[in-house]
Design a protein around this nucleic acid. Structure first.
Length: 516
DNA sequence: CGAGTTTGACCGGCGC
DNA sequence: GCGCCGGTCAAACTCG
């Protein structure tokens, strides 16, 4: 590692603490905590100088002599540290340290050539110093390594979060176009529902998804019930997030477009359910979850587990995990809620899958060439190749789209891929057969499997894009959401490939931005 | 000791 | 109004 290099990098990061929407959006995040943990902690410096412990003094001496990195680091701390006093004292202590260090080492070096009696002792001392130097250097390098890793993770997280935001904004733009026509769909859709088709009633009441980073940004009656109405809300274990705050609005079933525009907080929340074969108790999706409950659900001997996202304090995202009663190798994971924090690449991929699916679900009916399409028509048309991949459930109390990744064996043939009308792009994932999850959840061969998922999900989104995307978008290249859906669909089968996917998505997004 | 899990109790919605 | 059911809470417990 180039020592001067990281010093400069940190300094640059400090200099460019830009906002989230600038060209380098990620650099500014959470740097201060990390810097405060660095070896340059003022309190540590102070402690070392006030202490008679020789070793600690040596460490500080070595710190000074390590190389020029100390100076840019010092500058960084001065900028980052909100406690001006500490920063100042750090500066002065370092200067004091400089004097001590110079005297100590130079004296030893000079005397070694004059007095042999003292020279051996000095040699020992010098050896100790060198040893300490090396140890400190090693420790410093490890710390640097760790810090750089953290920074890289942070950069990735924030970058992907920004991408998600951009995707969401673009989807909103599309949805706004169709919003004014939604109310006309409701009457027709209700007729469809009466016929027993698989369209949830809530579907009719849904509006567009306007919240960035959103898996779903619509608020369920359940959420309203548990957060705003429950008298048991004691503040412990209850997240008072902006979302939950906004839930404190009476439930409202508005079909009026004006009301829809103004009653975002009252929107019901869609769910995205992912079915996959897995022996593991839970699908790894990149997020951290904490189990907060388990219930025996009616009609299923397998218990249903309830998890809450713990990646950020107050994140309202929850998921339910339950094995299928008929086939216990099938694991059903149902996601609900909106992450209130940037997601790591792995989680981003899953979230964008569910977000895109939920957006599709929530965007409601769409205009079509011969009039207006109702949601049931969407349900049919989004899956032109394989109706088993995704279904919209009417039985659930929430609008739920189920992505079924368990029935791909029969549709894996190259014939399916070749004949699939919407298999029009490929995302260059480095997908390989080395992932156990992939093997267990999706029988080999992995690569065709993934591609097949892509094609399905590109088809899933195409029916929207036909009507909402600019013509050149639909014709010349796969849409944003096409790519996102396809890429993340594969992720649901194999979440470990998400980093590569994020990179692929990133490149595509970049391309789209350039075109626009 | 802190974080995560387990599990019985509790609550509200909903159907009858 | 009552009971069922899904969802959540929170104390007790486990684990590293």
């Amino acid at each position: 590692m180039d020592k001067a290099g990281w010093g400069l990098t940190l300094e640059n990061i400090s200099e460019h603490q830009v906002g989230f929407f600038k060209n380098k959006p990620v650099y500014g995040f959470n740097l201060s905590p990390r810097l405060n943990n660095m070896n340059m902690n003022p309190r540590e410096e102070q402690a070392s100088f006030s202490s008679a412990d020789e070793k600690r003094v040596m460490l500080n001496e070595v710190d000074f002599f390590s190389d020029k990195r100390i100076m840019p680091m010092d500058v960084v701390i001065k900028k980052e540290d909100s406690h001006g006093e500490n920063t100042t004292s750090t500066r002065s202590e370092l200067l004091v340290n400089t004097g001590l260090q110079l005297v100590s080492v130079n004296t030893g070096s000079d005397q070694s050539t004059v007095d042999d009696g003292i020279s051996s002792e000095i040699e020992d001392k010098r050896a100790k110093i060198e040893l300490a130097q090396l140890q400190v250097e090693l420790g410093r390098m490890n710390a640097e390594n760790q810090r750089l890793r953290e920074m890289l993770t942070q950069v990735s997280n924030n970058y992907t979060a920004l991408q998600m935001h951009l995707v969401t904004l673009m989807q909103q733009q599309q949805q706004n176009i169709s919003r004014t026509q939604n109310d006309h769909e409701i009457v027709e859709a209700k007729h469809e529902e009466k016929d027993g088709n698989m369209v949830p009633r809530q579907f009719l009441e849904l509006g567009p998804n306007d919240e960035p980073y959103s898996l779903n940004s619509h608020y369920s009656s359940s959420e309203e019930r548990t957060v705003s109405e429950s008298p048991r809300n004691k503040g412990i274990g209850r997240e008072e997030t902006p979302e939950s705050e906004s839930n404190k609005v009476p439930k409202l079933n508005s079909s009026n477009p004006i009301d829809q525009a103004t009653d975002q907080a009252t929107m019901r929340k869609a769910r995205v359910s992912v079915r996959a074969r897995s022996e593991a108790p839970m699908i790894s999706d990149g997020c951290q979850w904490r189990k907060y409950g388990q219930k025996m659900a009616k009609g299923n001997p397998c218990p249903r587990a309830y998890y809450r996202c713990t990646m950020a304090v107050g994140c309202p995202v929850r998921k339910q995990v339950q094995r299928c009663a008929e086939d216990r190798t099938i694991l059903t994971t149902t996601y609900e809620g909106t992450h209130n924090h940037p997601l790591p690449p792995a989680a981003m991929a899953m979230a964008s899958t569910t977000s895109a699916a939920a957006n599709m679900l929530l965007s409601g009916p769409m205009p079509s060439a011969d009039g207006l399409m109702n949601p049931n028509f969407i349900a049919r048309t989004i899956l032109p190749c394989s109706p088993s991949v995704a279904t919209i459930s009417a039985s659930a109390p929430f609008p739920t789209i189920t992505l079924d990744l368990t029935q791909n064996q029969n549709s894996l043939s190259p014939y399916h891929q070749r004949t699939h009308p919407t298999a029009q792009f490929q995302v260059p994932f480095p997908i390989g057969p080395h992932n156990p999850n992939f093997i267990t959840s999706m029988p080999p061969p992995p690569m065709p499997q993934s591609l097949h998922n892509q094609s399905k999900f590109s088809g899933l989104q195409v029916s929207q894009d036909i009507h909402h995307q600019p013509p050149q978008h639909a014709l010349n290249q796969p849409s944003f959401s096409d790519t996102l859906n396809a890429a993340t669909a594969a992720i649901t089968a194999d979440p470990n490939f998400t980093a590569a996917l994020a990179a692929a998505i990133s490149s595509i997004i970049t391309g789209s931005q350039k075109e626009q």
